[in-house]
Design a protein around this nucleic acid. Structure first.
Length: 555
RNA sequence: GCGCCCGUAGCUCAACUGGAUAGAGCGCUGGACUUCGAAUCCAGAGGCUGGAGGUUCGAGUCCUCCCGGGCGCGCCA
């Protein structure tokens, strides 16, 4: 949070500089306040002077000195302010500021880190949305972890968030699914079936067929059309409820399950297309109807209605986003897709622009592939062939916490090699335990403190200036930085930053443990350290909760 | 052929979107439990950031061209 305060101070001083004619009133103010890599350069540094000097043709060091001198006057914030290198301004934050951080955390409790960035704006996060043709696999798990955590973060940052799953329950693959079940059912009845290559071959299809036969032994006697329809709907129901269960056990719940069928039933495909048509953005060619995507940045125009009269999948998507933006009026929509759909982004962005909306209202987050590693070797996966590691297996064998955490230890846009054996082996190589252990260790500390008669020690009654070792300050600075981390996660749509932050905080805590004792003969110091420990525990718990990972009291 | 993403230590990844001396974990070598949890910590070795140019006070980050990898490029979803 100190970074925000410094930024405010800088803005104030810039205004003064403009009044005094030192800087022109027209100025592109772009600068960063961030912790430098090297500690010798203070706690925070800004490139303000460097960024401004170029515009006004002044010596950056002179400019920097002017600012540094004036900022140094704020003694309650800064111990000293220096100019260094080509014109950086380095801030050394006062000990007093750091030492009051635990007091703030204590007073805000679970709300510490909450922001009002969203100002209550409505945002939708749509994720997973896997076709309901089979169980979720490992790749969907990654999307689930990223999407759910991002949603939690957005909500924590003051957005009004809806989580949504889009069900592709219309179209060819649904037909194939129904047919796959139907054929397996016939097989179970003893008929010899030539199972088509492009149908779903997983064992789960047989199970669905079996339970359908048990429940409705006569369904095969229906006319083929009806039987296929029945098989399709039954399969959809079974698979979807399995998906819901898997996700729930993975800590993911949705506000809406949005059916593609609904778009047709309630005529949204028609409405969306006529909306575009009225704007003159549709035309006919070769018997099909095309959308002028090229006029909005896509590489070519796209078919929305085939020559056969059937709408394309793209038409559904236009309708779906019409519904998101022009019916439900979300201020921001985040779609989370597998990276193999990246070619689809310009097409959909074109639609948003065609709706007359700024394209930033749609954020598409691409999640890279998860490669399955077994014994150091890549394994290929395919839903159709029925070869994959399911999310269910991961939850059961590896555990929800470890799985979610591992998925969030990488940027979404870099491919992830998931070594199942390694993740299963509850070894210390699993980073989630490192963070959870820090939390459990603190929980244990408080049990010990209570035994020693130190219960509910409050920041109000302790002398926080006794937090004075380098390790104290390291923890205090990290705690202060927590809200900044939340902000970075949200503005960059990168939830993995939180994971790395928590690893840093846990590292600092473990380090503290080996160098200092929280409980000692020195009662005032013990109390101050307990308040610090409480703040660390609070932030670890809040952070883990945002990741959807539990913060255990014991391990 | 065209487009998007990626290439950083032996391996898996960071680097706060252009900042100062590129950082962690694993693995390797060597150390630390009679005291709050050793699922921990400390130290060491390990780098021409795929290559070559360019932009500027300053480049892993931006631009151009190569090399290598992944994924797309349907009136499929």
């Amino acid at each position: 949070m100190i970074a925000k305060l410094i930024e405010e101070e800088i803005r104030k001083e810039v205004l003064k500089a403009q009044e005094q004619g030192l800087l022109p009133s027209q100025l592109k103010l772009r600068f960063q306040v961030e912790p430098p890599k090297n500690k010798e350069y203070g706690d925070y540094a800004t490139n303000l002077a460097l960024s401004v000097a170029g515009q006004v043709r002044k010596n950056p060091r002179e400019l920097a000195s002017w600012f540094a001198e004036r900022m140094a006057a704020r003694k309650e914030l800064f111990e000293k302010v220096e100019v260094a290198g080509p014109g950086f301004i380095n801030f050394f934050i006062s000990k007093k500021y750091w030492q009051q951080v635990p007091r703030i955390i204590e007073s805000q409790g679970k709300a510490y880190g909450r922001l009002n960035l969203g100002k209550g704006r409505k945002v939708q996060v749509e994720f997973v949305s896997a076709n309901p043709t089979g169980p979720l696999h490992i790749g969907h798990g990654r999307g689930a972890a990223v999407g759910d955590t991002l949603a939690r973060l957005l909500s924590f940052a003051g957005f009004k968030v809806d989580k949504e799953y889009y069900i592709n329950d219309v179209g060819r693959q649904m037909k194939i699914l129904g047919r796959s079940v139907y054929l397996r059912a016939k097989e179970l009845r003893g008929e010899k079936i030539d199972f088509p290559e492009d149908h779903y071959k997983g064992e789960y299809i047989r199970e669905i067929a079996r339970s359908l036969l048990e429940r409705e032994p006569s369904f095969l006697d229906l006319p083929e059309e009806e039987a296929l329809e029945r098989a399709k709907n039954f399969a959809l129901e079974v698979i979807l409820s399995g998906i819901k269960k898997d996700l729930a056990d993975f800590g993911v719940t949705y506000d809406y399950w949005f059916s593609e069928k609904k778009l047709y039933k309630e005529n949204f495909v028609e409405k969306a297309l006529s909306f575009l048509k009225e704007k003159g953005l549709l035309y006919e060619k070769d018997g099909a109807i095309w959308f002028r995507a090229k006029d909005f940045g896509d590489e070519k125009d796209r078919v929305v209605v085939r020559a056969t009269g059937e709408p394309t999948y793209f038409a559904s998507d236009i309708a779906y986003h019409y519904h998101k933006f022009l019916v439900r009026h979300y201020d921001l929509v985040v779609d989370i897709w597998g990276a193999d759909h990246h070619g689809y982004v310009p097409r959909l962005k074109a639609v948003i622009r065609a709706f007359g909306l700024p394209e930033e209202k749609l954020q598409v987050l691409l999640i890279q592939m998860v490669n399955l590693l077994e014994g150091g070797r890549l394994k290929s996966m395919s839903t159709r062939a029925g070869e994959f590691i399911t999310l269910r297996e991961l939850i059961d064998d590896v555990g929800k916490d470890a799985t979610r955490f591992i998925f969030l230890t990488r940027r979404a846009d870099s491919p992830l090699d998931f070594d199942v054996e390694l993740a299963k082996s509850r070894s210390r190589e699993n980073p989630v335990y490192y963070v959870q252990y820090a939390h459990a260790r603190l929980a244990s500390l408080f049990r010990k403190a209570e035994e020693a008669g130190l219960k509910n020690v409050s920041a109000e009654e302790v002398n926080l200036s006794l937090l004075e070792t380098p390790e104290d300050f390291h923890l205090l600075k990290l705690l202060d930085y927590f809200p900044d981390t939340i902000e970075a996660c949200v503005t960059k749509f990168e939830p993995h930053l939180l994971t790395f932050y928590l690893l840093d905080l846990a590292t600092a805590l473990h380090d503290y443990y080996t160098k200092h004792r929280f409980l000692s003969e020195d009662l005032p110091r013990s109390k101050a350290r307990l308040v610090l420990a409480k703040a660390v525990k609070q932030v670890l718990a809040t952070g883990l909760d945002l990741l959807g990972v539990s913060a255990p009291e014991r391990m």
